[in-house]
Design a protein around this nucleic acid. Structure first.
Length: 114
DNA sequence: ATTCTAACA
DNA sequence: TGTTAGCA
């Protein structure tokens, strides 16, 4: 994973900041966590810390709810989205393996140091 | 001062 | 979902 994705998924923001960023109440933010829409990092003192990616997710949840969807709908939506990403990753993995077998990997075969 | 859990006039 | 009590 590249540095940018790593940083965007870094748990840094306490709930008060997330409240301002999303316009949601602390009650709502914790409730969506309870409903398994997000899994939140906890410090040793049990304090919640959110990543920038999770702020995005919360904004999406907020929008979908205002669009008339319920918690179950959104959970199913995220699940299917997760499946699709996994399918894409598997497809890319198969292609990478295939390329290597055909001695055609993106790393090239002409400059191998052995 | 801020966050957390649990519970409900 | 709001709100509040009692704790960390």
């Amino acid at each position: 994973m590249d540095e940018i994705k790593q940083r965007k998924s870094q748990p840094l923001l306490k709930i008060s900041i997330v409240m301002e960023l999303t316009g949601l109440t602390a009650r709502q933010i914790r409730y969506y966590e309870d409903q398994k829409l997000i899994n939140v990092y906890r410090t040793k003192g049990k304090q919640r810390l959110y990543s920038l990616n999770q702020v995005d997710i919360l904004l999406i949840i907020k929008q979908h709810l205002s669009d008339g969807f319920n918690i179950e709908d959104i959970r199913a939506y995220f699940d299917s989205q997760k499946r699709q990403k996994k399918a894409v990753n598997d497809k890319q993995a198969r292609r990478l393996l295939f390329d290597e077998m055909m001695n055609n990997s993106p790393f090239g075969s002409s400059n191998q140091h052995y």
